[in-house]
Amino acid sequence: MKQKKAVRPQTEPSAQAVALLEKPESQFKEMWDSLRENKAAVLGLIIIAFLALVALIGPFLMPFDPDQSNMSQSFRWPDGTHWFGTDQLGRDIFSRIISGARISLTVGLSAVAISLVVGVVLGSIAGYRGGKTDTVIMRVMDMMLAIPSILLAIAFMAALGKGIDKAVIAIGLVSIPEYARIVRGCILSVKENDYVQAARVIGNRNSRIIFKHILPNVMSSIVVRATLGISTAVLDTAALGFLGLGVQPPAAEWGDMLGRARGFIFTAPYTLIFPGVAITVTVLAFNLLGDGLRDALDPKSRKN
């Protein structure tokens, strides 16, 4: 009648498997191993580490005072003394770029941190609860999206006052809707999955279901968006700076340098090229890392 033997196939664990069992690898280590194999991600990480180092020990690397203008030295082409040339006020561009790394990285990271935390919380609540909660949260987000983000940031700046810290808050606030929408969309697609229902059946609370079962499965999209968001934040700071609302002169900020030098694009292209390259490299590094993280965070694409 019933083939009882077939019910429970028993396999003897191999020596290697037993060794594996004794030392269960932490998830972080597995992710790290996977990330290390991705050459592009490693390159991104190296650039970011380099930028972070420059931001930290910048003052010791600068050959000149980045804020000291010297009209007699203005518009010098790059040479042995001024590696990246000098700008319209005779300030050393190399020193200003080093000085700007600190501002750009801080602004990018903190603005994204603000919008990420608030956006993830709002998006999760909206997506998971649904119904009226969803409608209220998402309509508010739509209202924020309806106003061009830079205009909204200017409005926030007008209310908060000038300064780089206020700029960070303003840029963080205006990009909340983007994160909220992405997170809500991801949660809507994941929450109907059987494993989320299974999590409810075994007695999980809603908060644990969101953080343990839903968010890890939508992390990849959020991480990728956040790395892109850092670059957007850097550019937004530049725009605010150009309008005189972000960094206050003479502080050096890449986007601000780019904006102020745009009139000299034909006569002194180096005044634009070097800040532009700095922004591009930073953005690229975060994007490479983001892509690598997305793959590393997904156990399915991990190589054994």
Binding site: Y195, A198, V201, I202
Partner: peptide, 17 residues
């Protein structure tokens, strides 16, 4: 939930990846 449990239809969808 400690007394009543469910086994799902689709084993590919019911385990958190």
């Amino acid at each position: 939930c400690k007394s009543i449990q469910l086994i799902f239809q689709d084993p590919y969808a019911s385990l958190n990846p």
